[in-house]
Design a protein around this nucleic acid. Structure first.
Lengths: 130, 130
DNA sequence: CTAAACCCTGGAGTTGGCTTTAAGTCAAGC
DNA sequence: GCTTGACTTAAAGCCAACTCCAGGGTTTAG
């Protein structure tokens, strides 16, 4: 799979794919003889994983650490788990905060709706009294 | 209330408070004769609101638009509500995405735990067979 | 009265995460 | 054989959102 196919499949710009690789977010992708990237199934898996994690706000640096540990094999299992747990906890905290803000926005919107209705009634009243 | 008190109260750096004001995220704060900022209750309310909304990912630009509309009075009620609804919807979408990623992380962590247990058993087996 | 601590402004610098550019290689279609 | 379009690299550029700095005025404790 060449870079533009991967780009289309996951809807990630080509430049971003190269950037992620340069930054060590995925293991160096195999090349054809002429030097073109040829993504394996596993590479695609990483790309999808990165996209998902970036979407949830994990930093480039954190993901680089994770894949670096992954590259060192089984003896980093515990460290990788710890990293995931720590990111999971942070993510959970972010979600909780955002949930509260969501509710606050919903409440604000409700108040706006009431005020808008009140405004319209007021207009109607004025028009009648003319 | 002077700027460092507000900074401490909401845990926002002084520079950031000034930056927000410069960017039009809150109405110009009243000054003492000598030119020092003196935050009113209402100013504090805005600061808290901004902190909350920024924490949920609303952009500086969006918040500037909101307060600009607010400054124009009642005739912008509908526009302000529309803006809030649009941001609410985006926030909800972000939360949903992050929820999915949270579950994925939880699953991954579970798998890691099992693998770690398996690894430990393996070690124990080796030690016994010596 | 003065030193230390605090506040002011305008503008420059930093950070994270891309995104574009320049200059070149390579493969396929006409 | 030549053009077109996709790929390559390293490096520079860009954007949002801060963050820091220089140079100067103000407030307060001793």
């Amino acid at each position: 799979m060449n870079i533009s196919e991967v780009s289309k499949k996951y809807n990630i710009p080509i430049d971003t794919l190269r950037y992620y690789e340069k930054e060590g977010l995925l293991p160096p992708v195999r090349r054809t003889e002429s030097g073109l990237r040829d993504y394996s199934e596993q590479d695609c898996g990483w790309v999808e994983f990165i996209k998902c994690m970036r979407g949830a706000g994990l930093s480039i640096d954190t993901l680089r650490q994770y894949i670096t540990l992954y590259g060192k094999g089984n003896r980093t299992l515990q460290k990788r788990k710890n990293l995931l747990v720590s990111e999971r906890d942070k993510l959970k905290a972010r979600i909780d905060e955002m949930q509260k803000t969501l509710q606050r926005l919903n409440y604000k919107i409700k108040v706006y709706e009431e005020r808008i209705v009140a405004c319209e009634k007021e207009l109607l009243r004025k028009r009648k009294s003319k």
